[in-house]
Design a protein around this nucleic acid. Structure first.
Lengths: 254, 254
DNA sequence: CGTTTGGTTGATGTATGTCAATATTAGTGG
DNA sequence: CCACTAATATTGACATACATCAACCAAACG
């Protein structure tokens, strides 16, 4: 997988600044590696938090807990994602970031990153890009939550995970299976439906031979069918970007 | 209303760069003023679009239309918002931007803005901030769509509009009424429910003396009750930022 | 004035939630 | 390796928030 693939949809002239900014940030974060178990809170909601993170391996999620016990996983982070970029600009994080599995992260103090940001527009570009990319995912998810049925949301999410894992090089572009550490209750809190209903949808997909989830592993047995279930929620452009709906024709490795 | 209020939640040390970046962008956009009627498409989905906009007056919204006719208003833009910042980095806009009323905008070609972005980290800060702010709103909306009932979503949205209009200085901070140009069908497409159900929720609020919508104007008659309906969807921090849930104790004008 | 657009309301249907019970698996200490 | 416990997954019976369908009204408008 070429590096450029990680930054889909870019204007070509920005590829160089993006990759240089990325390299600069990676270099700055060196020697800051940390490991956390699953179920830990990396960023606590309502607190001041001065670090910006890069997820090296494992899964994490931004989550908001409501006073009455309801919970929403707003966004899921996969390897390669920068997160908590907003630490640079806002004092307080309203949402928590929790690990969904054992994770390895690197991080940097916001003041140090901000110095780099002001001194190198390439670092700034990489940061802005990251936020834009998160925004793009949120757009898709708002559409899914606002318009999608439970089946459509599940299909969209599982294909999105697969596409992102492939882009980051964690799995091959044509992989039919991947590790997925979220419990059904956690999936429910991301999908905006109940855990019981998640279970029913997964059973239905399983019984129709479309896909199955077992032991923290997603196995897609009928990619076309799964893509068809997610397709109504995709815009035409997403539909044509093959790797995001499952028909990668790019090689898995560069 | 002091300028700084427009940039809530910031780290104090970034106020100066933010305001300077803002001023620089405003200056660059001078003499680019355009007026559009309601119902026009400013940015067409799936097309290349080279401009970054600033909304001077009126309402607009980012929207995604699905092939089967479903439609989702992803985000609503109010006066003072920058939008289509991503024009700088991505070639193609997957979502459209439509006017919801007569609007006045200013705009700038992305190459010109990018030059300023690379030459002034203050401009970069203002751009990154805008995207972070949009992301913050999307977080809240994902929580609303994922966890909220129809009543909670309506209450949250109407209070959010009020709070944002107050922050931008369009209405007074303690205003009980504001112009709201969206039709019930458009509200439905933002709320993720049907127009018929929007109507029922509004009727229920009206009959309970909480608020009413007539002739494109929202009138809040029982702010506490409306806030109580939205409160379950707010995190503790938002609840404490008074102007966002209706209890502004800041003066309306600076 | 007919036509269109937006709003309102009732009758009925359904996707999903709720409740509750039972498997199944994972973890823990003896 | 077993006994115990707590998560997690699974399933059925039943409830409900919201959707759908279909009418009708009111205002805007050319």
């Amino acid at each position: 997988m070429p590096d450029s693939a990680r930054f889909a949809l870019h204007r070509p002239e920005f590829l160089t600044p993006l990759l240089r900014g990325e390299a600069a940030i990676v270099a700055l974060m060196k020697d800051s590696r940390l490991t956390f178990e699953g179920g830990k809170t990396l960023v606590e909601s309502g607190t001041e938090h001065p670090f910006v993170y890069r997820l090296i391996s494992g899964w994490a999620g931004r989550t908001r807990q409501l006073a009455d016990g309801r919970n929403q996983f707003i966004l899921i982070f996969l390897p390669g994602d920068l997160f908590a970029v907003k630490s640079m600009f806002v004092r307080r994080h309203t949402d928590a970031v929790q690990t969904l599995s054992k994770v390895v992260v690197e991080r940097i103090h916001y003041q140090e990153l901000y110095r780099a940001y002001t001194e190198s527009h390439e670092v700034a570009v990489r940061c802005t890009w990251q936020v834009l990319e998160e925004e793009r995912r949120l757009h898709s998810w708002v559409v899914g939550l606002g318009q999608g049925t439970a089946e459509e949301r599940v299909a969209l999410l599982l294909l999105d995970f697969r596409g992102r894992l492939a882009l980051s090089g964690t799995i091959a572009a044509d992989a039919q299976t991947y590790q997925m550490p979220m419990t059904q209750a956690q999936l429910a809190d991301h999908l905006g439906i109940t855990a019981v209903h998640v279970n029913r949808v997964l059973r239905s997909f399983r019984e129709r031979g479309i896909m199955s989830v077992r032991d923290g592993k997603v196995t897609i047995t009928d990619l076309d069918a799964l893509s068809r279930h997610a397709a109504p929620l995709l815009d035409t452009y997403e539909k044509s970007t093959a790797q995001y709906v499952g028909h990668a024709d790019a090689p898995a490795e560069s």
